[in-house]
Design a protein around this nucleic acid. Sequence first.
DNA 1: TGCATGACCTCGG
DNA 2: CCCGAGGCCATGC
Length: 102
Amino acid sequence: MSKVLTQTLIYEILSVVEEIPEGKVATYGQIAKLIGRDRNARLVGFVLSKVEYYGRYPCHRVVNHQGRTAPMWSEQRSLLEQEGVVFKSDGKVDLDKCLWKV
DNA sequence: TGCATGACCTCGG
DNA sequence: CCCGAGGCCATGC
């Protein structure tokens, strides 16, 4: 980890991400809120984009509010489908059923 | 020190 | 659902 993006923030985010059960997905805003930074939803995405740098976490269970996955990510959909996450014809996650409820 | 970018969110139309 | 505007924080040049 050459760049230290506030270890505290990353630790809190990963803590929440680890709590996401299989077959469920969470939104960036949801996570941001759980760590007490509801205004920093952007940071969550920004951090998760580099989280693979810190270790392997189920960051594929995190999608945006539209249920859309990362634009450049190819296997994210496959990973989620393997866990039982339902996808719509549009290629988006069915948040009505797979959204992680706290 | 300042400006631009990003896996975003909410509100209104 | 898509489009546009405003906001918020950290990173990188």
